[in-house]
Design a protein around this nucleic acid. Structure first.
Lengths: 116, 116
DNA sequence: CCGCATCCATGTTGATACTG
DNA sequence: CAGTATCAACATGGATGCGG
């Protein structure tokens, strides 16, 4: 409850916060999950797998994941071009977490449907 | 990649997306984690544990977690008032994942420090 | 002590058009 | 195919003051 957020030591060293900043955002969880399910996906395939994403957000999100070293980006200099995305080792380490989270989500969704 | 987001069936049923919407946001992860560590925390204690949060965001975030049935809110009608927060059973079910995520974050933070 | 209300700043996401 | 660029909308977060 103070003003100088940047100087807050709690945030700088809190690993929970650190982790959430890396996999938060509207699409990162799903992208990581789909890359885990399919091993390798091309740009267009990812776009079709997330029907609600725009090219802008897809590119932007993939760049962030790449910078954070969670995914690999492999470019084939061909015509037409081809770019493949896959999880890095660090990214793979997140999968057990996302798996559990997904199972939790499935359970909650079931519960919600029981009400209706 | 389309216009009508509300009608997208993929999002409506994707449990990964569902789960991330519930524990996403700037503070939810840390709040859940601290409530797990301390079992019960009062409003002011939570505020001090998250030094970078404002009362507005603290209240707002706690309400969302309460509505999603992840935390309990117990009000003592005393003077001065007292409100205690704790995890619900559903909220507790998330802890293994947050623990896992935290361990991953710790590891990444260590790696980053090794570079410097 | 535990909030709520208001107004404002910033950040995130979306729509659309266009390119190598 | 795999992106960029631009502008606009919307969501999130912050500062401050007030109230039961």
């Amino acid at each position: 409850m103070q003003k100088k957020r940047k100087e807050c030591p709690e945030v700088a060293t809190c690993s929970v916060d650190y982790a959430f900043r890396r996999i938060g955002g509207k699409y990162k969880g799903r992208i990581l999950w789909y890359l885990h399910e399919h091993s390798i996906l091309r740009y267009g395939e990812l776009g079709r797998t997330l029907p609600d994403i725009t090219t802008k957000m897809l590119t932007q999100t993939l760049r962030e994941l790449e910078i954070d070293n969670l995914i690999n980006r492999k470019v084939y200099h061909e015509v037409p071009p081809k770019v493949e995305y896959s999880l890095t080792e660090v990214g793979e380490e997140l999968i057990p977490f996302i798996t559990h989270l997904k199972e939790w989500g499935d359970k909650q969704l079931e519960r919600e449907q029981m009400k209706n």
